[in-house]
């Protein structure tokens, strides 16, 4: 995969890409995974939605899987000099 100067991979930003790759691997219905990305006051806000039955798989026991996903988002943001927030829509 090639990266442009902004760190976008194949036209998708690294932040959105990492959420998509991880979320699709966790759920039963990868086709229903949707990630949107908006800028709000200098922060990138990512919204993740899945098929209704898959949300528990994203969150995990005691929210541990969601915490791991947020960690990957935070490290990606740090790497690219950004601030990011992940909203999991249920």
């Amino acid at each position: 995969m090639s990266s442009t100067e902004t760190g976008a991979v194949g036209g998708v930003s690294p932040l959105r890409a990492v959420v998509e790759v991880v979320a699709r691997a966790l759920v039963d219905n990868p086709g229903s995974v949707k990630v949107t990305e908006t800028e709000r006051r200098g922060m990138t806000v990512l919204e993740l939605s899945t098929a209704p039955g898959d949300m528990g798989k994203i969150i995990g026991r005691q929210g541990r899987t969601a915490a791991a996903l947020r960690m990957m988002v935070a490290l990606t943001a740090e790497k690219h000099g950004k601030r990011a927030q992940l909203d999991i829509k249920d």
Binding site: V9, P14, A17, V18, V21, A25, T76, K79
Partner: peptide, 12 residues
């Protein structure tokens, strides 16, 4: 493959 996809997506 999954791990490679994740780190590629992160831009690492």
């Amino acid at each position: 493959g999954f791990v490679q996809n994740v780190v590629d997506a992160m831009g690492l």
